[in-house]
Amino acid sequence: MLKLIGCCGIIAGAAGLFFEWKSREKKQIQQLQELEHFLQKGAFSIEKECKPSRVFFQEYIEWDGKDMMFVKILQELEENLKSNTFSTGQKAWQAAWETYKEKWRPGEEEWQVILSMGETFFGKDRKEMVFQMRAYEQRLLKLEQAKKDQMAEKGKIYMPLSISGGLMIILLLI
C-alpha cells in the first residue's frame, strides 16, 4: 500500500513539475501578447486620436489591461510622470520597469524591446512614433512565435522524460 502511495506521489510530482514549467511559459507568452496589444492600441490612439500619452495610459489601465502586473507598471509610470521629476518620458518609463523587472522576468531581447518602447510614447513626430510602435510590435510577435515553438519542442521532450523518469523511480522502488 505504501509503495502504491509512493508511486502515485512520484507520478504526481513529475506531472506537477511539467505543468509548472508549462504554465510559466504560457504566462510569458501572455505577457508578450499584452505588450503587443498595448502597442496596437497605442499606435491607434496616437495616430487616429492624437491623445496625449498619459491619457492613453490611464485609459489602458482602466479598460484594456488584462495582466495585473502590467497594469501596476503603468500605474507606477503614471505616478512618475505626474511627479514631473523625470526630465524625459523615457526615463520615467525605464524607472517604472526597473521596479518590476524581477517580477516580470523578461528575456534579454524582450527587455531591450521594452526599454526602447518608452521612446515611442514620448516623441515629437507622430508618424515616426507610430512607425516605431509597429516595428516593435513585429519584433514582439516574432519573440512570441519563437517562444511558442520552443515551448512545443521542449514539451515533446519534457513530457515523455518526466513520465519515463517517474516510472524508472517507481521500478527502482518496487
Binding site: I46, C50, P52, S53, R54, L81, N84, G89, F122
Partner: peptide, 12 residues
Amino acid sequence: NYLSGYSLYAYE
C-alpha cells in the same frame, strides 16, 4: 516635456 505632459506630439 513638463508643459506638454511628455506629449509634445499631441500639440502638433
